[in-house]
Computed example of a mutant assay.
Amino acid sequence: MPSVSSVTVSESNGLTFLDVSNAFASARISLFGGHILSFIPNSDGKERLWVSPHAYLNGERPIRGGIPVCWPWFSDDHGREKGALPAHGFLRTQVWKLINSAETENSTTITLSPSFTRAEGFENDCSVTMIIAVGKTMEVSLITENTGVAPIEFNCALHTYFHVDDIQNTQINGIEGQYKDKLDDWGLKETPHPYTITGETDRIHLVPVKTAEIEVDGTIYTEVISKGNDSLVVWNPWQSAASISDMDPFGYKHMLCVETSLTQGKTLAPGESFALEQIIVPR
């Protein structure tokens, strides 16, 4: 059970949720998937994350929206045929454990770990910990430690779905360089300027972007700070949302994925640890 007054526990449809409410913000975290579902700063009362109204919130499938945890591979980059192993790894479909909760004058901190880190496709000795700090910002750290005697290699991502009022009036600032276009045979292309979303988009930006801004109706709405990443993924299904069973056909109008990602492979020596971090800054 949480040891601090700013965290309460609730249950629904067999899932356990941690609800955070402090002087700065509120947040909701599902222990299924170690999945952050909501972050609402008290400064403006506006939700920064998007969860599909058709998301499975019963443990049957990964949750669509919020911040899914991708580990130890991204997408279907697991070395086998597509579909042979779960997309984005196996952490987002297991129940995580609450390791610790704590309060400071600036935030409430939740520490979680998955039930297991060895499964088909990744049979290495390691530990994974996620630390979530809810304050004026939301800071999420996904920490991998090699606890074995041999090097390990992995990828990971914080696959964040941001809420936007209208995707057609949304612009992303701060991304430069080339990206791989998944929708065009992984072709290399240059980042557009201005960076607007005008159709189905699935891009892996191959530079370690540290700060990106989501601008809505000409105003900076959310700043996304990334640490430890080697890439940044931008995704919106556009009208293909109609073919996704747990999305509303028009849900794409109100969401934009900007994902702090490690997609080019990270090797950890025995005893070494690595943190992938994303900080969501309301503006």
Results as ranks from 00 to 15, higher is better:
84 A>T: 03
25 A>F: 04
104 T>K: 14
63 I>M: 11
150 A>M: 12
142 L>T: 08
221 Y>G: 02
187 G>M: 04
196 T>S: 09
235 W>A: 02
95 V>E: 13
69 V>T: 10
152 I>Y: 01
218 G>V: 14
79 G>A: 07
272 E>A: 15
22 N>C: 06
282 P>D: 03
159 H>F: 03
157 A>N: 04
126 C>G: 08
159 H>V: 01
107 S>T: 06
68 P>Q: 00
272 E>K: 11
154 F>P: 01
25 A>Q: 10
218 G>L: 07
268 L>C: 02
162 F>I: 06
219 T>W: 00
93 T>W: 00
39 F>A: 10
41 P>V: 09
240 S>M: 00
17 F>T: 07
82 K>E: 12
260 T>G: 13
160 T>F: 04
228 G>W: 06
123 E>G: 06
99 I>E: 13
203 R>L: 04
134 V>W: 13
107 S>M: 11
269 A>S: 13
125 D>N: 14
87 A>T: 10
244 I>M: 15
111 T>L: 08
53 P>K: 12
47 E>K: 13
206 L>C: 14
55 A>E: 00
79 G>K: 07
134 V>Q: 11
195 Y>M: 13
256 L>A: 07
167 I>Q: 09
276 L>M: 10
141 S>F: 04
166 D>H: 05
25 A>T: 11
236 N>W: 06
188 L>D: 06
89 G>N: 05
102 A>G: 14
238 W>C: 12
265 G>C: 03
180 K>L: 14
13 N>G: 02
80 R>E: 01
121 G>T: 07
137 T>R: 15
5 S>N: 15
50 W>S: 09
183 L>M: 12
216 V>E: 14
207 V>M: 00
225 I>S: 07
62 P>W: 03
277 E>H: 05
144 T>F: 08
59 G>K: 02
271 G>Y: 01
219 T>I: 12
115 S>F: 08
269 A>I: 02
237 P>Y: 06
262 L>H: 11
267 T>R: 13
21 S>F: 13
70 C>A: 14
220 I>M: 09
135 G>A: 03
177 G>L: 03
11 E>P: 00
44 D>A: 05
278 Q>E: 10
181 D>I: 02
166 D>K: 06
129 T>Y: 13
220 I>D: 03
195 Y>H: 12
18 L>F: 08
149 V>E: 15
189 K>I: 01
215 E>Y: 02
144 T>P: 02
128 V>F: 06
66 G>P: 12
61 R>N: 14
